[in-house]
Simulated assay, not measured.
Amino acid sequence: HVDNSVKAKLEPFLNLSGDESYQNRDLEKIAQQVSKQFYDEKVKPSTLIPKQVGNMYTASLYAALASVIHNKHSTLVDQRIVMFSYGSGLASTMFSLKLNGGQHPFSLSHIASVLNVVEKLEARHEFSPEKFIETMQLMEHRYGAKDFETSKDTSLLSPGTFYLTHVDSMYRRFYAKKGAAISVAGKAAGLSANILANGH
């Protein structure tokens, strides 16, 4: 399904064997040129978050979906999206989603506004490599550990974010929610404001 100008560009490579075609840099360059229009139309809208954030492993696929919803939500109704992910081993997954308009709060336009992708990307905080290394070393030190409290500094967390406060001697994890007010029902039950143990 290519036009004559594309056929002419590919013709010099018709006699390559399959193995030769895999290693041929000239063929790779031509293939990128002739497929750019299709790539820009079908793939590029999914690359906003992955390009900004980097590899997130499993989350990468859904970051790509969020990028598509951000970029094209007004044209996605009744469209089918192919989702494909693969690991470093022999397993891969492919499935498709058919999107409909949906009703509030599940409309695509509402989902796009809640995702608020660009504003959230712009709200990121920049850290030095030294601070990143220090944070990773702390995570390594606490991996599988018990009897410790975390920093209570929540200045960089968005309101409503859950965060770990401490792990006790029985490995029970306790969480708080930034800026959350306890409900009347919670007060009646004698719960402490903002504190959750193992998610309850």
Rank of each mutant, 00 (worst) to 15 (best):
T165V: 09
N198C: 10
K120Y: 09
T161P: 07
S107D: 06
Q103A: 11
T93N: 14
E130K: 12
V2D: 05
G179Q: 00
H141S: 15
L90K: 13
I69R: 02
R173V: 10
H166F: 15
L97R: 04
E119D: 11
E126P: 06
E140V: 12
H141T: 10
A180Q: 12
L27K: 02
D153N: 10
D26S: 15
Y39M: 11
F13W: 02
K29G: 13
I133S: 13
V114N: 03
P12G: 07
S155T: 04
L48F: 01
L156K: 03
S67C: 00
V53A: 03
L65D: 03
K146R: 10
S155K: 07
M170L: 10
K7A: 14
Q103K: 14
T75C: 11
K29W: 11
V2W: 12
K42N: 13
L156N: 05
V167E: 04
Q137M: 15
S183H: 08
V117H: 02
V2M: 15
T58S: 15
Y22E: 12
H141W: 14
H125P: 02
S5I: 04
S88D: 05
Y86Q: 10
K98N: 08
H73M: 00
Q37N: 15
D168T: 00
I195W: 03
L76Y: 04
P129V: 01
E122L: 11
S46M: 07
K51G: 06
A193H: 07
A189R: 12
S88E: 07
D78T: 01
N4M: 13
P105W: 07
F132A: 10
L16N: 05
H110V: 08
V43Q: 07
N194W: 02
D147A: 14
S155A: 10
A197T: 01
K131M: 14
M83H: 02
S92I: 03
T161Y: 06
N4R: 13
T154M: 00
I195E: 02
S113K: 08
V34S: 00
P129T: 00
E20M: 10
I195P: 04
K131V: 11
L99E: 02
I81W: 03
H141N: 14
P159N: 06
G190I: 01
L27Q: 01
H166G: 07
N71W: 03
M136S: 12
A66S: 05
N116I: 07
G101F: 08
V184F: 13
G199K: 05
R173N: 07
D40V: 01
E28P: 04
E28G: 15
Y39K: 10
I195G: 01
S5C: 10
P129K: 01
F13Q: 06
A189G: 11
A59I: 01
N116K: 07
Q137N: 15
D147Q: 09
V77M: 09
N194C: 12
S5T: 08
N15R: 12
E11N: 13
Y143G: 11
S17L: 08
G190T: 00
G199V: 04
A180R: 09
